[in-house]
Design a protein around this nucleic acid. Structure first.
Length: 478
RNA sequence: GCGAGCGUAGCUCAGUGGUAGAGCUCCACCUUGCCAAGGUGGCUGUCGAGGGUUCGAGUCCCUUCGCUCGCUCCA
């Protein structure tokens, strides 16, 4: 999807994210670094809320899942067992004529030829053509290693070469026997992990969507062989339901069900959960039924048993696994896209609701444009803003501070004393703060404040003694 | 990685080889009586970076980095 409204809305979102402190380009003062991003004060709160929502629902509120936090660098044999060392180093061939790029082995396979290995390098056999334009002017195969390589210890010796993990999952598989022995869990049960992963993407695109450093939330759910289908169905539905709790509605989400032919040979099912980004429907999470592939491979490569003894059936087996694997940054981007909203809000004195803002139109008389982020309370970086109606009245400011000090124990709050009240409301709208509490002159007499709703701009007067319960009913919904 | 386009203030963008600008934002003060009100004042730039041509470069040339689009890649 490349229509104009889609690209402009991404531009506007990126601009807002920078202006308000959600997302910055990494190393910006040095010219930036492609595929790397930093999260500013609001962005890191948003990401933290997403991680917390996942961890609460996947680990803390379940009795059959435990957590784990593995190192980013693991023994290099890990990646031989997982298959990443080979599949991440696909030699590629470019056509010099039409500039298309191919995997060298699939190119030769299609044309009934074989890659030649001489003098330590792969070479194309004679007669291979570009399938698109027929040219024989092709580059020699060149390796594109998608794993970041580094060295343990001071010597850059190949024997000390290690990789930054390209996924968090392998740490879970490698620690499966330890976790099993300490957690008193029985199959079926899961091990969850949130952490950074690194892939040297050839071409990062679409803002933060495809980054070279990113954060994963992965659950490996270990099950009895033969129960794969039922658990896969369960997790697909469970994960779809979860996205609603962070403000991604069902109609913006999609399911991509892999054909048998698209699946890895060991997998029995895979479903992607997609979100309708302005640049197209793209994957947020993949839920794969991977059989016993991973544990079996680690058993082979390490020589350590990955078997589980099931007392009920008195049988030993290597558990199968269902893997819901989600990208934190992609979910954060989806949440930002979904929340972004422009509308025409009534000006002061008008008592009418806001109207939708259509591209290419101007606001009608009595209305002005308002930009807001309609974050669900669960992920909103700031939950409550507290304002004294006027700054130059010390009693109001003192009372507002008192309320702020009380509320900030429970929620992420922001106290703003500066400028006109309308401007302060709009500033909070733009960063998606669901609730605003304003202290006015009546407050000093009746100990009540106005509570203003971000989406409707409606206000309600409420006693300070009931404020916390009221906010709890609005904010602590999940 | 290839091709094309772009890079000027926090943001959006003007700028014809001759003194770097506008709007918005932001900050301070005045004024404030619930939705970006008004007034006064103020901050902000190695014009992405490096080199070259020129008396003189934001402007022309080369290199490089980054961004966008297309191709490519995407467990």
């Amino acid at each position: 999807m490349t229509d104009k409204t889609a690209t402009t809305s991404m531009d506007k979102l990126e601009s807002l994210c920078k202006r308000r402190g959600f997302i910055f380009q990494s190393s910006e003062i040095y010219g930036g670094l492609s595929g790397f991003w930093d999260y500013g004060p609001l962005g890191c709160e948003l990401k933290r809320n997403i991680r917390d929502a996942w961890w609460d629902d996947i680990v803390r509120r379940r009795s059959d899942v435990v957590g784990l936090d593995c190192s980013i660098i693991m023994h290099p044999r890990t990646w031989e067992a997982s298959g990443h060392t080979t599949s991440f180093v696909d030699p590629m061939v470019d056509c010099r004529t039409c500039k298309k790029r191919y995997k060298a082995d699939s190119l030769t396979d299609e044309q009934g030829a074989k890659l030649v290995f001489t003098e330590g390098a792969l070479r194309l056999p004679e007669g291979v053509k570009c399938p698109a334009c027929g040219s024989r002017d092709l580059t020699e195969p060149r390796a594109f290693n998608l794993m970041f390589k580094t060295f343990v210890g001071p010597l850059e010796d190949e024997s000390a070469a290690v990789y930054l993990r390209p996924e968090t999952a392998q740490g879970i598989f490698a620690q499966f026997p330890n976790v099993l022995s300490v957690s008193r869990q029985k199959v079926p049960f899961g091990i969850a992990q949130i952490g950074k992963a690194f892939r040297n993407e050839i071409n990062p695109r679409n803002y933060t969507f495809r980054s070279r450093e990113f954060e994963q939330m992965e659950l490996e759910f270990f099950i009895k062989p033969g129960t794969d289908q039922q658990w896969h169905d369960y997790w697909v539905q469970s994960r779809l339901d979860w996205y609603r709790t962070i403000g991604l509605p069902e109609d913006a989400l999609g399911k991509y069900v892999y054909d048998k032919g698209e699946l890895a040979h060991y997998a029995s099912a895979c479903v992607d959960i997609t979100y309708a980004f302005p640049f197209g429907a793209q994957e947020l999470e993949g839920i794969a039924a991977r059989g016993s592939f991973d544990l079996t491979r680690h058993q082979e490569f390490s020589g350590k048993s990955m078997e589980y003894f099931d007392q009920e059936s008195n049988q030993k087996f290597i558990p199968h696994v269902v893997e819901p694997s989600a990208g934190v940054d992609r979910i954060a981007l989806a949440v930002l896209c979904e929340a972004y909203c422009e509308e025409y809000a009534p000006k002061a004195g008008m008592d009418s609701p806001a109207i939708p803002c259509l591209p290419g139109t101007e606001p009608p008389d009595g209305y002005e444009q308002r930009t807001l982020m309609r974050f669900s309370p669960r992920v909103a970086p700031i939950k409550v803003a507290v304002f004294p109606l006027l700054k130059n009245k010390p009693d109001l400011v003192a009372k507002a501070r008192e309320i702020y000090d009380e509320l900030k124990i429970h929620w992420s709050c922001f106290l703003d004393e500066v400028g006109a009240i309308g401007r302060r409301y709009r500033r909070q709208d733009e960063i998606g703060t669901p609730c605003a509490v304003t202290v006015d002159f009546d407050t000093l007499d009746d100990n009540a404040v106005t509570l203003r709703d971000r989406d409707t701009m409606k206000q309600e007067r409420i006693g300070v003694s009931e404020l916390k319960d009221k906010l709890r009913s609005i904010l602590d919904v999940s």
